[in-house]
Simulated scan of single mutants.
Amino acid sequence: MEPSADPAARPAGAVLYARYAGRLPAALEKLAGPAHGVVEVPLHVAWSGLRAYDLDRPRLRMGLYRTVLAEGGHEDLVTLLNHDLLVAQWPVLRTLISRHVRTAWEDAFPELAAPVSSAA
């Protein structure tokens, strides 16, 4: 077996990237989570601390998205995250999540990585 074929020889960053990329929805439009109200996340996503997030409170909404992006599986992503909220929050949210999560999402969905143009 070649060293590069051995999963244990893969850099940790590559393993993390693959983990996050493997959870992604087929399209951003598949994110069908709520846009308002209180969302309670399952224990496998938030095993300690806050588990109920009020989407109408920006800081709590951002906390929910950070937690689900980092810890949620595919089904959690599509049922807890909302397409419009994710896109609207992404410019700030991308600075609050790990590089591996951010890169996996922006590689899969280039519209997230698009620079925001400023009005003159």
Rank of each mutant, 00 (worst) to 15 (best):
P91K: 11
L80E: 09
P91M: 11
E71D: 08
G63T: 03
E71C: 04
P3C: 06
A120H: 02
P115H: 13
A8S: 10
Y65V: 03
L28H: 10
R59C: 03
A32M: 13
A9M: 05
D84P: 07
G13E: 14
L112E: 13
L81H: 11
K30E: 13
A21E: 10
R10Y: 01
E40G: 11
L55F: 04
L43P: 00
M1E: 09
G72F: 03
R10S: 03
R10H: 12
E75V: 03
P110Y: 05
P3I: 03
A104E: 15
P42V: 00
A46E: 13
L112D: 13
S4E: 02
D6R: 08
A26V: 06
P34S: 14
S98P: 09
L28C: 13
L28K: 13
P42A: 11
P42D: 12
A9F: 01
T95M: 12
Y17E: 11
L60Q: 15
L77H: 15
L77D: 02
H36F: 04
R102I: 11
H36M: 00
D54H: 00
W105K: 02
E111T: 14
Y17N: 05
E40W: 03
A88L: 10
A35Y: 07
A108Q: 12
R66Y: 03
H83F: 14
G22P: 04
A35S: 12
R94L: 11
K30T: 08
A52E: 12
L50Y: 04
E29T: 14
P42T: 02
A35R: 14
R102N: 04
S4V: 00
A18F: 02
H36N: 04
V68N: 12
W47L: 00
L64N: 04
P42L: 09
Y53H: 00
P58G: 10
L85F: 01
E75K: 11
A14T: 01
V68A: 09
A9K: 01
G37C: 05
L31F: 07
A9H: 02
D84Y: 08
R19H: 11
E106V: 04
V92H: 07
R10M: 02
T79A: 07
R94N: 00
E40I: 04
R61G: 00
G37V: 01
L31V: 06
D54F: 06
V101R: 07
G73E: 13
S118L: 11
I97V: 13
P34C: 06
V39S: 02
W47Y: 09
L60H: 02
L96P: 02
L43S: 12
L55M: 14
A70G: 01
L16H: 15
Q89A: 13
E106D: 15
S117Y: 01
P115G: 12
A5G: 07
L64V: 06
S118E: 15
E106Q: 15
Y65W: 08
T79N: 12
K30H: 13
L60D: 12
V38H: 05
L81D: 06
R99Q: 14
D6M: 06
A46L: 05
A32N: 10
